[in-house]
């Protein structure tokens, strides 16, 4: 086994999940909502790339971002706004409902077999290829985009007025409103940002995984969600690190397990997840003494 390639592969997969985790963690931090339907934003952007394949690449990318953003805004406006004061279990079920409804839409519109959207396939080419080690541009792009999005979101939440308003609305929606925060607008803004992040995931992911299917975004979202719980879902950085960790672990174990035993990979990953949650229930990367009440 080539250990350097193994680590490169693990970093590559980790960066995919980290990107997904940022969008999930943002909505969880602001609304305390585990948005299962986030994966559908990724799928929507992916199908937009399929449909816009003949257009110039920048136009196709812009359309993918636009579609994901509009869909994210609609999700919040139509489905989640009315449930803002509902029990967490109720809102969770609502996100399932939205996710499955949209999946049915993709199934009807595009069919089950998938469509190819390798708009940026050149990103999958090697940036470095030496001594049996291949580092692809897409891995570098994912790490770069992930870092930029994480940094920008952290700055937005901590250093801008709208970020402060988002956090205020998240802490106490009614009090924030009484203090003049346009809470509906700032929460919509958070969804819009999560739409941008979902589009970024779709654009980079299709460079590596060109086939877009109705479950394109769902599968990756589920594992990323596991990652943010493991990392520490109450903070954007720990959640993102958790997303990275779950992808890294999955790839690393996939390489360590003998090829014939790779069928047990999900069991091995989830066994480690359970152990981590038992030992560090507040999250693997949460600061010592952190309580679950803290946010972002």
């Amino acid at each position: 086994m080539n250990w350097i390639q193994t680590l490169v592969d693990a970093i590559g997969l980790g960066s995919v999940y980290a990107l997904v985790a940022i969008g999930l963690a943002l909505i969880f931090g602001v609304m305390r909502l585990v948005n299962f339907a986030h994966g559908e934003l990724i799928t929507a952007a992916g199908y937009t790339l399929v449909v816009a394949h003949a257009l110039p690449v920048p136009v196709a990318i812009a359309l993918a971002v636009l579609v994901a953003v509009v869909l994210a805004w609609l999700m919040e406006r139509v489905a989640f706004r009315r449930l803002r004061n509902a029990q967490p279990a109720t809102t969770l079920v609502a996100t399932f409902a939205v996710a499955f409804a949209l999946e049915a839409v993709w199934l009807i519109a595009f069919g089950a077999r998938g469509e190819s959207a390798d708009l940026l396939s050149s990103l999958n080419e090697p940036a470095i290829q030496t001594g049996g080690v291949t580092i692809r541009w897409v891995t570098i792009a994912m790490l770069g985009v992930g870092g930029i999005l994480l940094g920008a979101t952290t700055l937005l939440l901590n250093r801008t007025k709208i970020g402060l308003q988002m956090r205020a609305a998240a802490a106490d929606f009614r009090a924030a409103r009484l203090l003049g925060v346009r809470a509906d607008a700032v929460i919509s803004a958070a969804f819009v940002i999560s739409g941008v992040m979902a589009a970024a995931v779709a654009i980079l992911l299709t460079a590596q995984q060109p086939l877009v299917t109705p479950t394109f975004g769902l599968e990756i979202t589920i594992l990323a969600l596991v990652g943010i719980v493991v990392g520490g879902m109450d903070r954007l950085t720990t959640a993102t690190m958790g997303g990275f960790a779950i992808g890294f672990l999955n790839s690393l174990l996939g390489n360590l397990l003998p090829s014939s035993e790779r069928v047990y990979l999900p069991s091995a990953v989830f066994l480690i997840v359970i152990i981590v949650l038992l030992v560090r229930p507040v999250g693997l990367f949460a600061p010592r003494g952190a309580s679950t009440a803290e946010r972002l």
């Binding site: 967490p88 599968e219 589920i222 596991v226 719980v229 879902m233």
Partner: peptide, 26 residues
């Protein structure tokens, strides 16, 4: 209390998600 309920909901989400993933992977 709200935090505990949120955790419960997230645990439920992860459980259902894991089942979903198993179904997808299968």
């Amino acid at each position: 209390m709200k935090s505990a309920m949120t955790r419960t909901a997230v645990a439920l989400a992860v459980l259902v998600g894991a089942l979903g993933l198993a179904a997808c992977g299968g």
